Amino acid sequence: MPTAIITGASSGIGLATTLKFLSQGITVVGVGRDQGKLDAVSAKTRSHSADFLPFAADITDDAAPLEIVKHATKKTGRLDHLVNNAGVGSPEPVHSTDDETLDRFLGLMLRAPFRLAREALTAFGDTATIVNVSSTYALVGGLRGGAYSAAKAGLNGLTLHMAAQYGSAGIRSNAVAPGVIPTPMTEHRLEVEAFRRMNYDMTPAARWGTAEDVAEAVWFLSSPASGWINGQVLAVDGGWSSTKFLTESALSSERNDQPADWTHSGKRRT
Rank of each mutant, 00 (worst) to 15 (best):
L234W: 12
R115W: 14
L143S: 15
T247E: 04
L160R: 13
T247H: 10
A151N: 08
G30Q: 07
K74N: 07
R196W: 12
P113F: 09
R144P: 00
R144N: 06
A164T: 08
S90V: 11
A112F: 01
L158H: 11
G179E: 04
H71S: 15
A72C: 01
M1L: 10
N84S: 12
H71V: 03
G89P: 02
K37A: 13
S253I: 07
K75Q: 07
Q24A: 12
Q232L: 15
V83R: 14
S10H: 01
I13M: 14
V83L: 02
E193A: 11
A117Y: 05
G125W: 03
A56M: 09
F21D: 04
H71W: 05
V94I: 15
T76P: 06
S149V: 04
I171R: 07
T76W: 04
A56Q: 10
P204I: 10
A225Q: 08
A147T: 00
G12Y: 15
K74L: 02
D126F: 01
M162Y: 08
G146W: 03
F52I: 04
T17R: 05
T159E: 05
V192M: 06
T159F: 11
T270M: 05
G154S: 15
N199Y: 06
G179L: 00
A250K: 02
A194S: 14
D201P: 02
T210V: 11
R255Y: 13
V28L: 00
I5P: 00
M202W: 15
R255K: 12
I130A: 15
E212G: 11
R33M: 06
W228A: 13
P182S: 12
R115L: 13
A150I: 10
A206T: 10
D62C: 05
P184Y: 12
P224M: 08
L102D: 05
W240S: 10
V41D: 06
A169P: 03
S253C: 03
M109A: 11
L79P: 00
G12K: 03
R115T: 11
A64C: 07
E193G: 11
F220E: 09
A9W: 01
T3D: 03
T17Q: 10
E119G: 00
N199P: 01
S222N: 13
G141D: 01
P224A: 11
R144H: 10
L106A: 10
T73L: 01
P65L: 02
G167T: 09
L102I: 08
G14C: 15
T129L: 09
V180P: 00
D201I: 04
V83Y: 05
F195R: 08
D201A: 10
S226D: 03
F245Y: 15
D80P: 00
W228R: 11
S242F: 09
E254Q: 14
S265K: 09
L82P: 00
A215C: 05
H264R: 08
Q258L: 06
R104W: 04
T7K: 02
R269Q: 08
K44N: 12
T270A: 10
R33L: 07
I171C: 06
A194N: 08
L38P: 03
A250D: 00
G89R: 06
A138V: 01
A138Q: 00
A138N: 02
A250S: 07
